[in-house]
Write a protein that binds this DNA or RNA. Structure first.
Length: 351
DNA sequence: TAGGCCATCTGGTCCT
DNA sequence: AGGACCAGATGGCCTA
């Protein structure tokens, strides 16, 4: 993009412009969070103004001193900038900038709202915009798949779906939310782990993932995400509005730690450990767009589905008793098994 | 210091 | 004409 000299002069970030900003914006600017742009353009701007005469009606032709070698420019000839026109241009530009700022703030607000309903929300460790969108897409897809298939998700596959295409730090964050080791469910996503990473089974990074399964203890270093204490993540404030899926998780959340930044995202309260079913049923994330399917089934018989998903009638015929066989199976972790059972039962039975 | 992320400015395009 | 939307450019901040 080539700016004309005049346009360059127009690039003004003046005090008057700040007056058009919202209070929040001014506050941000006061904090030094100002973007690019030319604050130092004012002088050149003044220089231009001095060159202009005062006649507002003047609409002179473009300068004739182009020189004979220069080809004649096409299109409408540029009007010479008078002071008044300059002033109007400045005002128009300032208003446009203010609108654009507001528009972007609205966009960011919407994104923040999205962060709150997407798994792994944290005030302190925000997902980036792109990761938020990716995670949201995955999340929607995974939930849609639940609805479409009428089957409860295999947790491993569910997490795989969530983490599809996410960066390693975000994957770690999701894993942290699930109290999982990302390497246990995303082998395809980390084909070539950095050399500095400890091998599976090596000592973990303290405080990253409390999930300490025998033989699977390594965490992935990815601060700032990795510093999150996952024990906070599942802390549910009673009565906290978590959205339509909230009833799923009533009574199935476990938290031993202090409250995490509320509000928390709704669904990723899936605690505990995964069974060896992952070995048999986890779908390769690289092909999940085509082949993803949740492996844990529940009977097609009697009990109605959860009203939060299947409607207030709760009479989705596909929703029946949940069969959690094959889901459990982490040896010596009956607590997690009970948790899992409770959670899955909570999902597929009316509370 | 490089790279990622972000906020902002800016000009172009489309629409009302 | 003016507003909404978009994409490119720019510079600040932060982290590895």
């Amino acid at each position: 993009m080539t700016r004309s000299v005049l346009e360059e002069q127009m690039s003004v970030e003046s005090d008057e412009q700040q007056e058009l900003c919202s209070p929040a914006e001014r506050e941000r600017s006061a904090e030094g969070v100002t973007g690019g742009g030319g604050e130092e353009e004012e002088d050149r701007f003044h220089h231009l103004e001095e060159d202009e005469d005062d006649d507002e009606e003047e609409e002179e032709e473009e300068e004739e001193e182009d020189g004979e070698n220069k080809p004649k420019r096409r299109g409408p000839k540029k009007k010479k900038m008078t002071k008044a026109r300059l002033q109007r241009f400045k005002i128009r530009r300032m208003k446009a900038n203010a609108r654009e700022r507001n528009r972007m703030h609205g966009l960011n607000d919407a994104l923040e709202s999205l962060r709150k309903v997407v798994p792994c929300y944290s005030k302190t460790q925000k997902l980036s915009k792109i990761e938020t969108l990716r995670l949201a897409k995955n999340y929607i897809w995974a939930l849609s798949e639940i609805l479409r298939s009428g089957k409860a998700p295999d947790l491993m596959s569910f997490v795989q779906a969530l983490c599809k295409g996410l960066s390693q730090p975000t994957t770690n964050l999701v894993a942290g939310c699930l109290q999982l080791n990302p390497r246990t469910f995303l082998p395809e996503q980390t084909p070539d782990l950095p050399a500095h990473l400890p091998p599976v089974g090596a000592s973990s990074y303290p405080g990253h993932f409390p999930y300490q399964s025998p033989g699977l203890t390594a965490g992935l270093p990815s601060p700032p995400y990795g510093t999150m204490d996952p024990s906070h993540i599942f802390h549910q404030v009673k009565g906290q509005p978590y959205g339509p899926l909230e009833p799923f998780f009533d009574g199935v959340l476990v938290s031993d730690g202090p409250a995490f930044d509320p509000p928390l995202s709704p669904p990723l309260s899936i605690n505990g450990n995964f069974s060896s079913s992952f070995k048999h049923e986890a779908v390769a994330a690289t092909d999940y767009d085509k082949s993803f399917s949740f492996s844990v089934h529940y009977g097609g018989g009697g009990a109605g589905g959860h009203p939060a998903i299947y409607g207030s009638g709760g009479s989705n015929p596909r929703c029946g008793d949940l069969q959690v066989d094959g889901l459990m199976g982490f040896d010596g972790h009956s607590h997690h098994e009970r948790l899992m059972n409770a959670q899955l039962n909570a999902i597929f039975h009316d509370s």
